[in-house]
Design a protein around this nucleic acid. Structure first.
Lengths: 367, 367
DNA sequence: TCCCAACTTGAATCCATAC
DNA sequence: CGTATGGATTCAAGTTGGG
């Protein structure tokens, strides 16, 4: 895509402010080709039926707001198409858009993005360090959300701050899976009654990474579903201009107050927020999945007095006991506890070698 | 969804074999409602690459009339719809399907799954320990692929081996993000010239987890895009039946040889993890009938705050409430529900012991 | 002031069976 | 079919409050 003169100048934009009303109408009222980056956190169209309780009988405070209710997929698709079209018109030719969602909506959003001519650059997974567990034990813990990052079209020359991302990631290329905690504690905006101000507030660290990756200082960032204003708060801190669109007057009030308190960072060297590198925990079961131990293999205790068989799910079974390597190790000895990694051994060239040896092997393979 | 008699018996299925030909035709020739789980690794929409290039080099702008590209997506969508429909017909009512893909195709596949009435259970992210780096430094390293797990419909009662997954993950719930290496080294199938036999061979560890999570021993697993046969190899090892569909004779040859060399785990106790849910039900009244508890015995709540008396018909009576162990437990606490087996206790040697202990005793006596 | 235990909470399509 | 009911099920952080 060729570099063009901007279709509008900054003065014609309602910079650093929140526009109240329907986001589609508001976007249609903005000048064409004027926005550098859009971050959108649209309704997810959750389809919840009854109530959900934790095992301790407390009720989960679910998202049941009217703004998340759609009659059916067709209605949701129509809404998605309408706002994505409006967004595409106001985006600069080299601008990009981020959309976040869960499995309830993200596949529909992604297909629509492609249908409308957006060009996918990445899908990025936000892995939550502290997701809500699955309380009924019927599925996998829903521990991530998906973001889609697109340019306006295939030929766009999008902004990507490769070096900044590399620096954020201990000098390794930033991957498409990001590990970040959900928004809790002091960061979570409260209303005057002390309740959570918005049910789906996103963490500032997430927006920090997104804005740092795909915009320059001074760029205009627009958020059509502004909510509690995380996008505006981080954009202001990072020296970007921002525009928020929001229907709900209460959310607007909370966001305004929040953003007013933000101090922009003037010294760019302060922007370096190194991410923690995670040390992967290695469950014993992974050795079986990975073929380092076959199901049915016999393990021997270090002293040779006991044996146990490896099961396909990573538990052990001995004459009288079944459970984890630690549990069975403790049980056969009648001990209160046992480190199964050191206690159980395999035969290697006539020697008994603790299974911890295999774990070290696996760790090395996983860096 | 109610348990129904199977619509076909195992004898009518081409078990543990590869059918050569088009997967849609092959699925249409199989009996309805006969498959427990489908794993599908469909082709990505790679023909898109060249065709998006406009001959006149005009920018992609007004999306609605960009019918060239729409035609490409439409072709892929038509193919996706056809094979997903055929797959849904042969799936048992309580069966599930897994589909893996990347951002090139997974959003279209996901939307189509929903449109066809499949019910999403999870989207699962396969995080690669060793992804291909991004050479141009214009995007994030593409370090994951996405899998969608669906039941046939909203009312299905899908198989999920919660305890096995928990065991595989050091006794913590298995999350929706899985860290596994890509398939390399000895596991990678080579052709007779020593080149890689299949371009997108999936790691056996991935299939191990999928099959362990969502099937029982003896279940029938079908893979409509069989390729190098990873699904068959792991299914055989884990005591499941399998059917592979594949067009390419070369891949079929490689897969047959590979699967023939697999040693199945024969001991069922290594494959099946019992769960509390599948234990036979013991009515509380049986404890009284069998003399384990005399009528009039006083039960104490686990925290010692409440008491209730056992009546001869197996109900309890407290100061204000009368009913089952669960009902009275819930009522005294003012809770929406209560597991009376864990809540109510008897005195044994000065300790409060949950009545669940007596249930276990009774279960043991009944083997 | 420090420490530890107890309590709270988060975008959730979260049950199975008998009658 | 619908309705009633037995009874299985949670992880990581942050906050609160007492000793």
């Amino acid at each position: 895509m060729k570099t063009k003169p901007p279709k509008s100048d900054l003065k014609s934009l309602p910079l650093d402010s929140i526009l109240r009303g329907d986001c589609i109408a508001a976007m249609n009222a903005l000048p064409e080709g004027s926005i550098d980056m859009i971050f959108a956190d649209p309704p997810y169209n959750l389809q919840l039926e009854g109530e959900l309780h934790r095992p301790n009988n407390t009720k989960v405070d679910a998202v049941d707001d009217d703004w998340d209710k759609f009659a059916d997929f067709a209605t949701y698709d129509g809404f998605t198409e309408a706002w994505l079209k409006a967004a595409r018109r106001i985006l600069k030719d080299d601008g990009t858009i981020w959309v976040i969602g869960s499995y309830h909506n993200i596949f529909r959003v992604g297909a629509k993005l492609q249908d409308l001519g957006y060009w996918m650059l990445n899908d990025v997974v936000w892995r939550k360090t502290n997701p809500m567990p699955n309380f009924r034990g019927r599925r996998f813990t829903n521990a991530h959300e998906t973001m889609i990052w697109c340019s306006k079209s295939k030929d766009s020359r999008h902004q990507f701050n490769y070096e900044s991302m590399k620096a954020l990631n201990d000098d390794l290329q930033m991957r498409s899976d990001w590990l970040l905690p959900i928004c809790t504690g002091n960061e979570r905006i409260k209303d005057e009654k002390g309740n959570k101000g918005h049910p789906t507030q996103k963490p500032e660290a997430l927006l920090h990474r997104i804005i740092m990756a795909s915009t320059k200082p001074g760029d205009v960032v627009l958020d059509p579903f502004f909510g509690s204003g995380t996008t505006g708060a981080v954009a202001k801190r990072l020296g970007r201009r921002w525009i928020g669109l929001e229907r709900d007057e209460t959310y607007i009030g909370l966001a305004k107050k929040r953003i007013a308190a933000v101090q922009p960072v003037t010294d760019p060297s302060l922007l370096h927020t190194p991410s923690k590198r995670e040390e992967p925990r290695i469950p014993f079961g992974w050795l079986i999945e990975r073929g380092l131990l076959p199901p049915g293999e016999v393990l021997h205790s270090l002293n040779g007095r006991w044996t146990a068989k490896v099961r396909a799910d990573g538990t052990l079974i001995s004459a009288d006991h079944r459970g984890s390597i630690h549990q069975v190790g403790a049980a056969v000895q009648g001990a209160p506890a046992c480190n199964g990694w050191q206690f159980w051994c395999i035969q290697r060239e006539g020697q008994l070698v603790p299974i911890d040896y295999l774990r070290q092997q696996l760790r090395a393979e996983m860096h």
